[in-house]
């Protein structure tokens, strides 16, 4: 049990590190949001499960935190992405842009 817990903790830490690295290295905001959200979500799940395996009595609360993070983290990143799209210039290397028609000409220039 302790071994499984430590493996999960280590994996979670590695994913968190990758999230930080993704935030630092990706070239534009939307890619940063993607890397950050995915890596930190799995990192949080993994660390929480690791702690849950070490202390099985805490599992109920840990599952509650996992459910909350699974719902709230993607919503938060979607909201940031929408706000970013509305308020800043688009990346120049886009292959395709379907959202333009949704907001029309009412944003920025």
């Amino acid at each position: 049990m302790a071994i499984i817990s430590q493996i999960f903790l280590l994996l979670g830490a590695v994913f968190y590190l990758l999230g930080g690295l993704g935030i630092l290295r990706m070239p534009d905001t939307f890619d940063r949001i993607q890397a950050g959200t995915k890596a930190t979500t799995l990192g949080a799940f993994s660390i929480l499960l690791g702690v849950g395996f070490a202390q099985p009595g805490w599992l109920l609360k840990i599952v509650l935190i996992i459910i909350f993070i699974a719902i709230s983290n993607p919503i938060g990143s979607s909201v940031i992405a929408k706000a970013t799209y509305k308020s800043y210039e688009k990346p120049t290397n886009l292959k395709r842009d379907d959202i333009k028609e949704l907001f029309g000409g009412e944003i920025n220039e």
Binding site: G22, R25, P27, Q34, K38, A39, T41, F45, R96, D97
Partner: peptide, 24 residues
């Protein structure tokens, strides 16, 4: 979710990040 993280890891760790973005 695990596949997505492996994908992120692959992109982040490669020297030149392969990108081809778009809104659909």
């Amino acid at each position: 979710l695990v596949l997505a993280n492996l994908d992120v890891a692959k992109r982040v760790l490669s020297p030149k990040i392969p990108l081809n973005p778009g809104f659909i």
